[in-house]
Amino acid sequence: MLEARGLRKRFGTVAALDGFELSVEAGEICGLLGHNGAGKTTFARICAGLERPDAGRVLLAGTDPSSSPARARALIGYAPQEIALYPTATLRENLRFYGGLAGLRRSTLRSEIAAIAEAVLLTDALDRPVATLSGGQQRRAQAATVLLPRPPILLLDEPTVGADPVTRQALLALVRERAAQGAAVCYTTHYLPELEELDATVAVAQAGRIIARGRREELLAGLPSTVALEFAQNEHADEHADEHPDTDTDADADGGLSFVTGRPAETLARVLTSLGERVGQVERIEIREPSLDDLYRHLTAANQDTAIQDAADQSTAKEDEHVR
C-alpha cells in the first residue's frame, strides 16, 4: 500500500534521507523509530507530498505522488507533529472543513463527526473553539480530523506527544481499528511501549535509512534476556558477580545482581546451584525478556559503532594514502 524505494533528500549539507526504503501493507501498523534527525519526519512529508525527494520514489497504492499528486494525496491522512487546527473555529467546524475537503457529503458528515468525536472522547468538546481545548484534547482533535475521511494510508507523526494516558489509549484504539479496517499505518513515535500495544511491526531509522525492519518477535529473537536476582544482604551480590565472569554480570548497590544472557534458564540454574546454602538469601528472581527499548538501543549503538569504525577506517586509509 505504501512503498518507498531508495529515497534521498538533502537540506543543504545535511542528508535527511540516504537510501530510505520502507513498505507498509494494507492493514499493517508500522512503528517507525529513530532518534531526532533520523529522517522520520522527512519521510512522512515526502509521502504527504510536502517535499520532493532528490532521488528515489514513493508509491501510494501504486500511485506515484510526483506524477499524480492530487490522486496520491487523496489517499493519505497526514497528522504532523505540531497541532494544525483552526484555533478560533470549534472542533465541529474543523472536522466539517477537513471532511468537506476530503469529499464527505453533508448528509454523512454529521453522523461521521459524531462517531469520530465519540471515538476520541471529545463529544462534549465538539462545539468549543479549539483554542480553548487542553493540549491532550487538541492532540485528539487533530487525530480526529485526519481519521475522519477514512484514508487508506495514515501517516501519524508522533500523534501522542504530550498526551495523557486516557488520551493515548483512545488514540491507540482508534489507530488499531483503522488498521483492522484495512488502512496502512505508518506510526512515528518515541514511546516504544505504544508499538507493543498497537501490535505493530517495527522499522528503525538512523541517519536517513532503515537499519532494521520486521516483526517485533523476529527482531527481538536475537537479543539476550536479563536474569535479575535480589539478595537480602548486599555483600552476596558482589561475591557472585565475580563468580560468573563468562556472562555480562552487573551488581548494583541495592543488593541486586543481573546477568545478561542468551540462555536465561540455564544461567539461572547455574547461578542458583553456585549459591549453595546461600540461596535462602535470594529475595526475588526475575527473567526480563528483551524489549523494544533494548532492541532500539542495541541497533542504534551497533550502527553508531559501525559508523565510527567506518570513519576511522576511512581516516586511516586517507593517512596511508597521504604517507604513500
Binding site: 487523496a74 462517531a115 471515538a119 477514512r150 484514508p151 488499531r176 483492522a180
Partner: peptide
C-alpha cells in the same frame, strides 16, 4: 481486534476517496 477497539463506535471502513471537484473545494 481487542475488546476495547470492538467497543468503539462504528465508523465506516477505510476507502479510497472519490475525487472532489475543484469548485466544490473552492
Amino acid at each position: 481486534m481487542s475488546a476495547e477497539t470492538a467497543a468503539a463506535p462504528s465508523i465506516a471502513a477505510v476507502s479510497v476517496p472519490a475525487a472532489v471537484s475543484r469548485p466544490r473545494r473552492w
